[in-house]
Simulated scan of single mutants.
Amino acid sequence: MSDDGPLILVIDDEPPIRRLLRTSLVVQGFRIIEAESAAGALQRLGERPDLLILDLGLPDMDGIELIRRIRKIAKAPIVVLSSRGDERGKVDALDLGADDYVTKPFGMAELVARIRTALRHRVQAEGGEPLFRSGTLGVDLVRRRVTVNDAEVKLSPKEYDILRLLVIHAGKVLTHRMIMQEVWGAAGDVQYLRIYIRQLRRKLEANPERPRHILTETGVGYRLQVLE
Results as ranks from 00 to 15, higher is better:
115 I>H: 02
118 A>V: 08
123 V>I: 10
164 R>L: 13
139 V>R: 00
75 K>P: 04
113 A>R: 10
130 P>S: 03
114 R>N: 05
77 P>R: 01
71 R>L: 03
84 R>W: 10
77 P>D: 15
122 R>D: 15
138 G>V: 07
111 L>M: 05
110 E>C: 00
151 A>C: 08
136 T>R: 15
150 D>I: 03
74 A>P: 08
140 D>R: 07
134 S>Y: 07
143 R>A: 13
83 S>M: 10
82 S>K: 07
106 F>S: 03
72 K>Y: 03
123 V>H: 08
135 G>F: 12
72 K>T: 13
110 E>T: 14
103 T>L: 02
81 L>T: 11
113 A>W: 03
145 R>Y: 04
120 R>F: 01
161 D>F: 03
156 S>L: 11
97 G>V: 14
160 Y>Q: 14
160 Y>I: 12
77 P>N: 10
155 L>S: 00
95 D>R: 11
141 L>S: 02
95 D>S: 07
104 K>Q: 09
78 I>H: 04
121 H>M: 08
97 G>K: 09
84 R>K: 13
76 A>F: 01
128 G>I: 10
121 H>D: 09
84 R>H: 13
150 D>K: 08
150 D>R: 15
102 V>T: 04
151 A>N: 12
129 E>C: 08
80 V>A: 00
85 G>Y: 12
159 E>M: 01
92 D>K: 09
150 D>N: 06
165 L>T: 13
138 G>W: 03
72 K>R: 15
137 L>E: 07
94 L>H: 05
94 L>V: 10
94 L>W: 07
89 G>Y: 04
136 T>M: 13
117 T>C: 01
157 P>F: 00
144 R>Y: 08
98 A>H: 11
136 T>E: 12
150 D>S: 12
114 R>Q: 12
159 E>V: 12
117 T>W: 00
100 D>F: 00
152 E>M: 06
155 L>N: 02
113 A>I: 11
122 R>G: 08
71 R>P: 09
92 D>I: 12
87 E>G: 01
78 I>T: 11
147 T>V: 05
164 R>M: 10
103 T>N: 10
160 Y>P: 09
109 A>G: 07
77 P>Q: 02
95 D>L: 03
90 K>D: 07
71 R>C: 04
136 T>W: 04
162 I>E: 02
120 R>G: 00
98 A>M: 05
165 L>V: 14
106 F>K: 11
132 F>K: 09
83 S>N: 13
120 R>D: 12
71 R>T: 12
144 R>L: 05
143 R>E: 15
73 I>G: 02
105 P>T: 14
111 L>V: 10
78 I>S: 01
140 D>W: 07
163 L>I: 10
134 S>C: 02
147 T>A: 02
163 L>W: 07
124 Q>R: 12
76 A>M: 08
158 K>T: 15
73 I>C: 03
127 G>N: 14
158 K>D: 14
152 E>T: 13
130 P>Q: 06
118 A>G: 02
132 F>Y: 11
95 D>Q: 11
107 G>P: 02
129 E>R: 07
149 N>C: 09
88 R>Q: 10
74 A>V: 05
84 R>Y: 10
153 V>F: 00
131 L>F: 09
96 L>F: 05
151 A>P: 01
123 V>W: 09
111 L>K: 04
141 L>Q: 11
158 K>R: 14
150 D>P: 06
139 V>S: 01
97 G>E: 13
140 D>K: 09
120 R>V: 05
98 A>T: 13
152 E>K: 08
89 G>V: 07
131 L>D: 06
129 E>F: 14
138 G>Q: 06
91 V>Y: 00
